[in-house]
């Protein structure tokens, strides 16, 4: 490699760009920490859990700062969505790889990719005008945990399905031929050979889907009703942590504003932990 002067300048430029790119995440974390500092100091640690309710005020002494009902809202909506989307997504992947005729499989995969590309605000709009009235017909008010979980299911289904499908595709053909030669049936092959070999990719998909469900804002904001309460039934309106930030940032001041940054920081920690886990799993196995 020759070392010309332009080459040296190029490398300097590239290193500088790399530094800026790498610094963005530090900047994000730094600003979240700075902004959440007043509330963490004034509200302390235990009051996020022990306060009787969520009535935030600009000075921590007069307000109530219980985040737990919204944490339950987030976990319930995301949990139900993952529980519904995972089997459907795995069925979709198995359908594409093993049961559908090639033309149908190609069409189906294309459709899942399109579903993955629909913006969350459009899912929210559709949920609000199609699902909520339907639920309202059976159990008013309609805007509910159920509506949120249903919309989230639709949003994370493509994520899990596409990653599972790619994982199934990466299982070496030799495994399949060996299974066929050993006389395994099709379901036996899928359960005994394909799923174990592809489990890393499948888990990665589920973890990323969970992260997406927990971090999603717009769709749940539009269909969940946004009442701060611990859900006791599927038809209760709920408010998630993300929706809370979107709703209250408009007017929050002082410690209240800072409290929203605390919840943002908590969300970020949860989602990053999930993504890191997915990464770790994906790296450890051969056919992710």
């Amino acid at each position: 490699m020759s070392r010309s002067r332009t080459d040296r300048w190029l490398l300097v430029g590239l290193r500088a760009s790399g530094a800026v790119t790498g610094a963005v995440v530090l900047l994000v974390i730094a600003f979240l920490l700075i902004e959440s500092w007043p509330a963490s100091r004034h509200v302390g640690l235990s009051r996020w859990i022990t306060d009787p309710s969520w009535y935030p005020t600009s000075s921590a002494a007069d307000g109530r700062f219980n985040l737990v009902p919204m944490l339950w809202g987030t976990l319930a909506a995301a949990g139900i969505a993952v529980a519904l989307a995972t089997p459907l997504a795995l069925l979709s992947a198995v359908f594409c790889r093993f049961y559908a005729p090639p033309t149908i499989a190609r069409f189906y995969r294309r459709m899942i990719q399109l579903l993955a590309g629909i913006p969350s605000v459009v899912y929210g709009l559709w949920g609000l005008t199609a699902l909520v009235p339907l639920i309202q017909h059976f159990r008013p008010p309609g805007t509910s945990l159920l509506a949120g979980a249903a919309v989230l299911t639709l949003m994370i289904l493509p994520t899990i399905a596409l990653l599972a499908d790619a994982a199934l595709a990466n299982v070496p053909g030799d495994h399949l031929r060996a299974a066929a030669a050993a006389g395994l049936s099709r379901p036996g092959t899928i359960r005994g050979v394909v799923f174990p070999a592809a489990r890393a990719g499948i888990f990665t998909g589920i973890l990323l889907g969970t992260g997406r469900a927990i971090g999603e804002t717009m769709a749940v904001l539009m269909v969940c009703g946004n009442i701060v309460q611990t859900p006791t039934s599927l038809f209760d309106p709920i408010r998630t942590l993300t929706a809370n930030i979107a709703l209250e940032m408009a007017y929050a001041m002082g410690d209240h504003r800072s409290a929203l940054f605390v919840s943002g920081l908590a969300l970020m920690a949860i989602v990053i932990a999930l993504v890191a886990m997915a990464d770790r799993i994906g790296r450890g196995y051969a056919y992710a």
Binding site: T217, T242, M268
Partner: peptide, 13 residues
């Protein structure tokens, strides 16, 4: 890490 940050948190930042 940045890829995992939820979009509303980008909004806050």
């Amino acid at each position: 890490t940045l890829a995992g940050v939820p979009s509303i948190v980008f909004g806050l930042f």
